[in-house]
Amino acid sequence: MSTWIPLWLHKLGSPPTFYRVAGAVRPWAMGLALLCGAIGLYGGLVLAPADYQQGDAYRIIFIHVPSAWMSMFIYAVMGAAAFVALVWRVKLAEVVAMESAPIGAAFTFITLVTGSLWGKPMWGTWWTWDARLTSELVLLFLYLGVIGLYHAFEDRRQGARAAGFLAIIGIINVPIVHWSVTWWNTLHQGSTVNVFGHSKMPWDMLWPLLMVMLATKAYYAASLCRRARTDLLALESGKDWVRQVAETEAGR
């Protein structure tokens, strides 16, 4: 079945190649993340005008929205990697899936915290059972379940496959949760809050947001590279290429 995988994926999927490529990519990604983050946050927190309805409180969206986006993006990456890991038993895919989970959980946590900080001045409460918030909370539980299951196994590769299976189940689950909570809200006639309903976002608010989004993406790439490299070294500790890496590092 391995013939289905395109050749480049197979080549990049070999741990020594990935180790080298990831090592080269990481500093650039980290640099891009810091640069874009600094520019975006300066633009968002200083340059952008205050909102005519929400005042300065809205500025938390420059953290909140990019992390919310990342929490879902990383879950999608994790699910895709888990699928590849389960079907083709690619070791690198297992590593990518499992090392994405803690990063994704961190972004989800940031989303929830900033969301509730924002909710206090906006809705007068730290928490509302709105569909988007509830789905985000369920997403956090899914991440924690994946991480917990991964660490419950003695054999790390087996743990990665089991946790990957759970991640794939979760991908089906998140839309169902979102939809059912929406239904639940109409039943209970709760306050449905529409965050972006009021207006189209003006350009001087939009560009800092896009900058921060780019920064979080780059940060994810950098962080994933570092974690995956460490993990690969541990997983392949018996292999020749790891010995060579260790020798060159020691020689420096």
Partner: peptide
């Protein structure tokens, strides 16, 4: 319990 919670919400 942690794994089942997200699935049993709906």
């Amino acid at each position: 319990a942690l794994m089942l919670l997200p699935l049993c919400v709906p």
